[in-house]
């Protein structure tokens, strides 16, 4: 039971990462690898506001996520869009994104050193809560509720608002949205802001649980990609479930095989899905833009 709870908590973080990644992927149809390192940058910014200005944890996290969101928008407007306008292929976009990830990673290491830092909400609360034979820490509760609240808010936004509908429409058929008179670029900018904002919060949750290093960007984006593929790429609900399943399976792997097998378990799960259910759990209508 404890493994399951731990798995769900880690899975909640993966689900957030996957949802943000999927949101962006659905709109632009290439792997935005830079996503992972901007999430890491969000963690460092959160830590900066927390320690330098002694702001409340949640306020620091929101400011960090907001700045990350703006950087995500900048990446679209000044890095990806000019290439897309020149008809760059999705492979070119991915390579450029990877290059940018390495640059930002090294910049973070230059500024904040290549050490592992952790973030703590409160020094006074160390003891976990015990019930039904399960122990859950305060940090883990924060992770659980933050993930849940964000996922619910995103679902409501996508399904109940006009701009949410426009984002879903772009994921389905971007050319058609232009024909209907929508300012598609503005909506994609919105997608980059929301996706990156979510990723930064997910990153901060990682820092609460295991700490952060500049090199975690690739690790985070890989987890987002695996969860997205498992869930069904393009599907938000699939990404959430994919993230949760990945977290649970990884924790089972760690329990039975040891911590060193965490990544192996994740990639084994991915391989199983690619072999037997390549379209993922939620087979969203296949649209090839």
């Amino acid at each position: 039971m404890q493994i399951l709870v731990n798995g769900i908590i880690v899975g909640g973080i993966y689900a957030l990462m996957a949802v943000g990644f999927n949101l962006i992927f659905s709109s632009v149809r290439f792997f935005h690898l830079l996503y992972g390192i901007i999430a890491v940058l969000g963690i460092y910014l959160t830590r900066f506001f927390l320690l330098t200005f002694e702001l409340n944890f949640f306020v620091s996290m929101l400011i960090g996520a907001g700045i990350s969101g703006l950087l995500g928008m900048a990446a679209w407007q000044w890095l990806y869009k000019p290439l897309m306008d020149r008809k760059a292929s999705s492979l070119v976009m991915m390579v450029v994104s990877f290059g940018a990830l390495i640059i930002v990673q090294n910049l973070i290491a230059m500024i904040w050193k290549n050490n592992t830092y952790s973030i703590s909400i409160s020094d006074t609360i160390k003891e976990g809560y015990h019930f039904l034979g399960i122990t859950i820490t305060f940090n883990q509760l924060v992770i659980l509720f933050t993930s849940l609240i964000l996922v619910i808010l995103l679902e409501l936004f996508l399904n109940r608002t006009k701009y949410g509908m426009a984002i879903r429409a772009i994921g389905d058929n971007a050319e058609l949205t232009t024909i209907l008179g929508l300012k598609t670029n503005q909506i994609i900018l919105m997608v980059f802001f929301i996706g990156t904002f979510i990723s930064s919060i997910a990153g901060t949750m990682v820092a609460l649980e295991i700490g952060v290093r500049p090199t975690y960007g690739l690790f985070l984006v890989l987890k987002a990609i695996i969860a997205s593929i498992i869930g069904g790429i393009g599907s938000m609900r699939g990404a959430m479930l994919g993230g949760l399943l990945l977290g649970v399976v990884e924790n089972i792997g760690i329990y039975y095989l040891g911590g060193g097998w965490q990544e192996v378990t994740a990639f084994l799960l991915l391989t199983v899905f690619l072999l037997f259910l390549p379209q993922g759990m939620f087979n969203k209508v296949q649209v090839s833009n």
Binding site: M165, R168, A169, G171, D172, N173, E175, L176, I179, K284, V285, V287
Partner: peptide, 13 residues
């Protein structure tokens, strides 16, 4: 209003 060739709808909506 313009209705183009090919993909005409938002299939998952």
């Amino acid at each position: 209003s313009f209705v183009g060739q090919g993909k005409r709808t938002f299939p998952s909506m």
